[in-house]
């Protein structure tokens, strides 16, 4: 029953995104970015299940984007760049995760932040390689071997993001229901019990971490190919903060939460910027405060409440 409801909600969301993109051309871009960020936030959500907050996931977002920026000239094919970005971000996640998975809570969050800021500095300092803060331009790659017109390309990126969002959403849903996912919740409640059962908490967290890094890489690749200009700002801590912000806004209860949060976040930002060009930060802050104060389960929890169900688990 619950599953059926979630699937129909997801289908409704897909239809809503497509309808909005069809009606308003400029929304195609905003929604593609929102879906990409939603995919990255899905990774944050996995870690949130284990009670761990990463303040450094911009590392994976930006590494995915820079994989695109560096490889697009020699390999102009979106459907190859995406898995490559995922692979490289996943590998970085594996290396970093090997020692990060030993840490918990504030130490986990801060170490993630530290590593991502090291990467940011490298992007800025290795000027000859990365063109520094001015960033690298990305020429639109082919999609499935087709050199598309720019208008078709914008549509193609939206559809790619939509398909990946649905795919990763289902994957995360299945993962959370699996023993590996259940063990994540075990880390949050009482880790010793897990170890007592013969389950290695480190491996459980590492697996989730690598998966989240991989999704971050995919999200970054989409962002890079959509904005077609990649700058080190993507690796800055404010981007990591944005992802955590979206996770809280959307709610950590279900796989749809991150997408709900990301779309809301982008739309609120666009509207706030349109209405009050110099006060958009304040408006976003007020929205987050309202959500924390009145809807601790995030937008997803609010939606479940509207549908007459109990709100999902708070983060």
């Amino acid at each position: 029953m619950r599953r059926g409801a979630e699937i129909s909600l997801a289908l409704l969301g897909v239809a809503g995104v497509l309808a909005a993109a069809w009606a308003a051309p400029w929304l195609r871009f905003v929604l593609t970015i929102a879906l990409a960020k939603g995919i990255a936030v899905l990774g944050i959500l996995l870690l949130l299940r284990a009670g761990q907050v990463s303040f450094g996931h911009a590392l994976y977002l930006s590494s995915g984007a820079y994989v695109v920026a560096f490889l697009a000239p020699s390999l102009p094919e979106a459907l190859l760049l995406l898995p490559l970005a995922a692979l490289i971000a996943g590998l970085i996640g594996l290396v970093a995760g090997l020692f990060l998975a030993r840490y918990r809570d504030i130490f986990f969050g801060m170490l993630n932040l530290a590593i991502s800021m090291v990467f940011y500095s490298l992007l800025e300092k290795l000027y000859e390689l990365t063109r520094g803060t001015d960033g690298i331009r990305v020429e639109p790659p082919r999609v499935a071997g087709l050199a598309l017109t720019l208008e078709a390309y914008v549509w193609a990126m939206l559809l790619v993001a939509l398909v990946l969002a649905v795919g990763f959403g289902m994957l995360v849903r299945a993962y959370l229901a699996s023993p590996m996912g259940q063990a994540l919740a075990g880390i949050k409640t009482r880790e010793t019990r897990l170890e007592f059962m013969g389950v290695s908490a480190r491996r459980v967290l590492l697996a989730a971490y690598v998966l989240s890094a991989l999704m971050g890489g995919v999200a970054g690749a989409i962002v890079g190919m959509t904005t077609r200009h990649v700058t080190p700002l993507l690796a800055y801590w404010t981007t990591s903060g944005e992802l955590v912000f979206i996770a809280i806004l959307g709610g950590a209860g279900g796989a749809l939460g991150p997408f709900l949060g990301a779309v809301t976040y982008e739309l609120v930002r666009v509207y706030a910027a349109a209405a009050f060009a110099e006060a958009w930060q304040a408006i976003l802050g007020v929205v987050l405060l309202l959500v924390i104060l009145f809807a601790p389960g995030g937008l997803w929890g609010m939606l479940l409440g509207l549908l007459g169900r109990r709100p999902g688990r708070a983060p």
Partner: peptide
Amino acid sequence: APGTDHLVGEFRR
């Protein structure tokens, strides 16, 4: 100030 993805989106809007 918010960065490229926001600016590019605003340009389109």
